[in-house]
Amino acid sequence: MKRNENREGIKGMANPGRYGIERFAYWLMRITGLGLLAYFIGHIYETSNIVNGKTAWENMLSMTQTTEGHVLLTLVIGMCVFHTANGIRVMLGHGGYGVGKPARPDYPYTPASQNNMHKLCIYASIGLAALAMMYGMSVLFGE
């Protein structure tokens, strides 16, 4: 029961607005991870259709030629790029790289682990994802 421990639950965990860009990146990382997993499973299902012959394969493939298909693929591109770029940042951080050095803290106590390098990497990951999506759209929707 919520009252017992007053836990924030999924809603609090997923609420990305209150704690700065790092919490937003955490949230995006989870969402894109799950999104990619869903795509990956769908992708296996889609490509496994090749055993049903050429027509079945081409029928399946035509799904990606629609506007909805293009939007979906554009999203997948964005998720892929953000998840990979931010994943590299997170993995380095998890290994203890780039999280700052312990030091006697001074008011106003800006935490060294939430440094500008990390913020920059998060913004860069989002920017790269946006660029890749734009390029993807220009190819998918082009001509």
């Binding site: 951080g93 106590y109 682990s113």
Partner: peptide, 12 residues
């Protein structure tokens, strides 16, 4: 490594 702990800590 969402970092929210560090952002709310009042003692640095």
């Amino acid at each position: 490594f969402a970092g929210s702990c560090s952002q709310v800590c009042p003692k640095g």
